[in-house]
Design a binder for these strands. Structure first.
Lengths: 333, 333
DNA sequence: CTGAAAGCGCTTACAG
DNA sequence: CTGAAAGCGCTTACAG
């Protein structure tokens, strides 16, 4: 691979001039520009962006840290991040943590060492983020698809999503609605408050189980305590169930059908994430869609705004965006 | 962020010495090393890898070019690539082409300009690869999850996979087996030859349709000419169908069930890729598993071997690895 | 419009 | 064991 110096020599000009041609600096004699371009083309010269980064103190690289990408939800976001970053001439260095906090720290150090211009992160553990906080005054950081106080973030509004599901099901006439998920989840909070504000009841008997009791994400295995679940549904006259993701919802539908409980006639089911699974199963699954494309786009937009701003101190108020969820209705409700 | 020069000044030593400490060069007085390390820790100094890359002419970056990652198959491979690269201290720059050849060329130029040490690519169009060939004498390239003559590659053996499916179905007693896919596909070639070598028949009536006739990958839409398909199956007494991916297989199962054709009693179905969908639908889908983890690992291993070899000319024979497919039997057959 | 020179933050012979 | 110096491939004032 030729260097700029070699191209300069071949064209009989100085390195400065070649640099000016490469960077479209108008102060170049058109004749000379043409000659230089000829040699650039002839040797298929590509300027070394590493050298350029060193001079400009800017890598045009964005580090993206994700816990995993085998769940179909993250690839959608990653694709959107990559696509949007490209529009601004940035590229993505991918760092996966596999749910391991130590690895997240190492990946963070690696990205800093590589002098990425900014970082997009979906934190591995929302309760342990000191190491991320520690760098955010040095390097722009945007939290993606999670809301984390003190940070810039872009996420779907989980609280509203919960409300949306409750409203929809109540509107359909359901008065006794079950939930499979964690009670601390904001997806639940909005759901719960909507139920209560409609003078309906949600107590322990409506909290059917935790997600890990029906499906083990690690080894992809079903671990249901079936009979407990089924009796809870029957004994409490549950007619609709809100689940925290499409996989859980699908496992649930299979289980119910196996026991001759019809979906949606006996029990309606709502999933979350609106993955491609929804259209593949029978009945097709009603699910809450996250605007993954917008999440990716907005994350990049905010990050690049922070990168290219002159004095970072002025904009100390974090930009926090909660996008609207959308309920996609299908046959399961 | 501090520089090496500043750390040197603080520690009262030369920059060379700090460099030696950073690089674990044994020729450093233990006392001095300790002192230098103290300042490195104190200021949380991280050496600038961009500068290092410029000196060493080595970026420890691998470019990965994929057509997309929203299909659940690619993330598995990408995860494996990232994980394996990390073990060798390399990181991944992600480049997605979205099935666009022009974009593939741009991404390739970008990666060259960034001076990645090597490229892993799943080509967007197998019929148009001149631009990839053009760079492979300059930069190590490994083709991933495809077999492309003239290149190093790592893939599952599609031919064997086809044979495997045919053998399995014939062994189950099926004598009239349908296929949904393209006839040029190697997945079909092995399948076909196995059928023929068992003195069974495969003619036009067994080629049920092309994949794009049952499912449009672009807009995620079902476009079946249902009646044509159903009558082909009935009129020809097809009792088993081999499809080229799990999504098509699932669409097919839904269609059959809608028309009261039972799976597997009336028609057995085999998918391809063994994605998470297989366990979610009813009946669970028998599918050909690709060893995605091994594909990723082996791709990185070969690439890094090529990167770190002294004279690239000697190893002009491309390394081509075809890994064994595995048939995962479930309820659909 | 053009070129010589300094400098980005490192590594690495070389001399001592 | 240590430091001064050259150099990696660029960009960018500066002088002309």
């Amino acid at each position: 691979m030729k260097t700029m110096k070699e191209i300069a020599k071949l064209a009989g000009v100085s390195q400065s001039t070649v640099s000016r041609v490469i960077n479209n600096n108008p102060n170049v004699n058109p004749e000379i520009r043409k000659k230089v371009l000829k040699y650039i083309k002839k040797y298929n010269y590509q300027p070394n962006r590493i050298a350029r980064s060193l001079v400009n103190n800017k890598s045009y690289l964005i580090g993206v840290i994700l816990p995993q990408i085998s769940n179909p939800y993250f690839p959608q976001i990653l694709e959107s991040l990559e696509d949007e970053a490209n529009k601004y001439q940035y590229n993505i260095v991918l760092a996966i943590t596999y749910g391991n906090l130590q690895r997240e720290k190492e990946q963070l150090a690696m990205l800093i060492s590589r002098r990425v211009d900014g970082i997009i992160i979906n934190p591995t553990k929302l309760s342990q983020t000191e190491h991320i906080k520690a760098i955010k005054d040095t390097l722009p950081v945007v939290v993606c698809a999670q809301d984390l106080e003190g940070f810039d973030y872009v996420t779907v509004d989980h609280y509203l999503a919960g409300k949306l599901v409750a409203k929809y099901l109540i509107n359909k006439g359901h008065i006794n609605i079950g939930y499979i998920g964690h009670l601390e989840d904001k997806k639940f909070k909005g759901f719960y408050e909507e139920i209560i504000s409609n003078n309906l009841i949600f107590d322990e008997s409506n909290h059917l189980m935790k997600p890990e009791e029906i499906y083990n994400q690690q080894n992809n295995d079903t671990v249901t305590q079936q009979y407990e679940l089924l009796s809870k549904i029957k004994n409490n006259n549950i007619t609709a169930i809100y689940t925290i993701n499409d996989i859980i919802a699908t496992k649930l539908i299979n289980l119910l059908q196996m026991h001759k409980i019809r979906v949606p006639q006996d029990v309606a089911i709502v999933g979350f994430d609106n993955t491609l699974i929804c259209n593949l199963i029978n009945p097709a699954l009603t699910s809450v869609a996250q605007p993954t494309r917008e999440i990716g786009q907005k994350s990049i937009e905010i990050l690049i705004k922070k990168i290219e701003i002159e004095n970072p101190q002025t904009s100390n108020i974090p930009e926090q965006v909660s996008l609207l969820p959308k309920l996609v209705e299908r046959k399961s409700t």
